[in-house]
Design a protein around this nucleic acid. Structure first.
Lengths: 133, 133
DNA sequence: ATTGACCATGTACCATGCCATAGGGTCAAC
DNA sequence: GTTGACCCTATGGCATGGTACATGGTCAAT
């Protein structure tokens, strides 16, 4: 007697596009739902919840592949959540690296910008000269 | 009497793949070079230099489109380098925004990780619970 | 019995920055 | 005259995270 949802309703409740649900199914992020006699997919509310979880995880900067790893850990290892830790921890490391790179870039860009006091002739603009060194 | 370079030599000197030169040509980043009687492209050393500049600009986090804007300014505005400033300044703004987002993400990930002391049962792991809230 | 809303599959497309491959031409050396 | 290295164009592929479209089936209401 659980209220099964067709794809339109399910995607609306999860706040995603219809194609997104089919895409997640292809990517293995959600299991292929049962089909009714019509051949229509019939989603459980749990799947809607799962899709919301996926969307939330994306906001944490996790890629769909990383999220899949996460979910696979939940599937397979009933025992503990070490796998989850590893995924998150390695994502933190990634993020730190990206931050370092971006900080470097910002610093360099600022130097580039400051090197040139506007309105000079282009061919002697230090910005182009720096890029060309 | 300038030593013209065919694409293999030019790409080697610039440190990029042959296809990359053709790709940059299609994207309008470098001008289509003259063709010899054989129909082969004949690059000047200046083009090689330009490609190196493009590669350096990429390391500053600039996209090919942004680099094209930059180069177009150099082409068109013989007068001053305000355009260059604008490109760089807006890139700095972008970078700051990305930094802010990444910092947020890192903070959240750390909270997520710290919320769970390893080796507990999976179904009560706060990581999954947080994602599922 | 037909309309309209919904669903199905398969395919192609968006941006990004290339790389690879197929099928052919050019050219110098042997 | 043939080999091999090089070049040409055009097309398709990679990863990422989807969206859109063409073509057709299902189903309830009118």
């Amino acid at each position: 007697m659980t209220p099964l949802l067709r794809i339109g309703e399910a995607s609306a409740r999860a706040g995603v596009n219809i194609q997104t649900l089919r895409y997640y199914e292809r990517r293995g992020l959600i299991k292929a739902p049962e089909r009714g006699s019509s051949g229509y997919r019939e989603y459980t509310p749990e799947t809607v919840q799962l899709v919301k979880l996926i969307k939330r995880a994306q906001k944490f900067g996790l890629s769909l592949n990383e999220i899949k790893h996460l979910l696979d850990f939940c599937e397979n290892s009933k025992v503990n959540c070490n796998g989850l830790h590893d995924v998150i921890a390695s994502k933190i490391a990634d993020t730190k690296e990206q931050l370092a790179v971006l900080n470097e870039i910002e610093k360099s860009l600022k130097l580039l910008l400051d090197s040139c006091s506007t309105k000079g002739p282009l061919d002697r603009c230090p910005i182009m000269r720096s890029l060309n060194d």
